[in-house]
Design a protein around this nucleic acid. Structure first.
Ligand SMILES: [Zn+2]
Ligand SMILES: [Zn+2]
Ligand SMILES: [Zn+2]
Ligand SMILES: [Zn+2]
Lengths: 157, 157
DNA sequence: TCTCAATTTAGAATGATTCTAAAATAATGG
DNA sequence: CCATTATTTTAGAATCATTCTAAATTGAGA
């Protein structure tokens, strides 16, 4: 995915809602895009942004992430350690992706397909509940964990 | 569900793992059972326990809830406000139930059936991922929200 | 009863997040 | 270009949930 193009899209989302894409915001967004695979905490983002723009304030990072969450550009997630993590939702107003979480080491893999469409239809029909958003995480063990240092047995055919 | 019977079960789980059901722990568990429908924060539990046992310390509440989470008796959940909420998993080692969350007012409804069995088989077969636990929440709008004060239109046939 | 381990307590400490007031920046209108 | 005003950012203080600490309590077994 072309990062510059993504930034443009996000810029439009911001402007639509009456916000500007300031330098700080742009760098924060860029950091998120460049680390799409990770699930960064505000502090993580702060550190990474500081490398490119040392004058940034932590409050700005928090505020911007909050703003991006409001605009549904990122999801603010909580995986049980004490910190909020921010996860790009992906292009356009896509559904929230699902997570596979290694029970041993916490490593994350994402499933981008939407596995919930059927259930959501059923919810509307049977429960009178119209779904706007969802969250689906699985905790378990990978036959082969994406984290090479994970102590789960791996490789051996 | 008979509360006393549930407490017995939980007592067994505790003892199996070498813990005692102290007075404090019992009251905390009782409060959880009596408020099964709610999703109480540690502070909420603390308040409710204090009514029955004013000498209780907040640290004990936190420690006990942590313990119950370890034993899979409760799930420690985070719904995006700043606090952890503790949710009884239900009898035995049942799967974690699903949530319907009102987008307007935050009211919660639970779905106790397991809607994920198929997906979990697929995960094992296609992704080599063996599921231990899951979390599934839907955010959306009820045709008729369980919270009577919710501003979502309701009733009208 | 004495001893040891488990548990609880109050309060201090921590750490993530939010708030505040002042400074910087950007857009607007003359 | 200058003054005005709104938006945004900054540093640091404040808040608030949670965890830690050291001392007191409890309870089972010798
Ligand atoms: Zn993700
Ligand atoms: Zn792993
Ligand atoms: Zn629940
Ligand atoms: Zn509602």
């Amino acid at each position: 995915m072309n990062i510059q193009a993504e930034i443009e899209k996000i810029k439009h989302s911001l402007m639509e809602s009456g916000y500007k894409l300031t330098t700080q915001r742009e760098i924060i967004v860029r950091v998120l895009l460049e680390n799409e695979e990770d699930h960064l905490s505000a502090e993580d983002v702060y550190m990474l942004v500081k490398e490119k723009f040392p004058e940034i304030g932590l409050a700005t990072v928090y505020r911007t992430l909050e703003l991006l969450a409001e605009l549904q550009i990122v999801a603010k997630m909580n995986f049980g350690d004490g910190v909020a993590r921010f996860d790009l939702r992906g292009q356009d107003h896509e559904h929230m992706h699902h997570h596979l979480i290694c029970h041993t080491c916490g490593a994350l893999e994402e499933i981008k397909d939407d596995w919930l469409l059927e259930l959501e239809q059923r919810l509307e029909a049977e429960y009178g509940f119209k779904v706007i958003d969802h969250r689906l995480d699985f905790i378990g063990n990978f036959r082969s964990c994406p984290n090479d240092n994970c102590k789960t047995h791996k490789g051996s055919a």
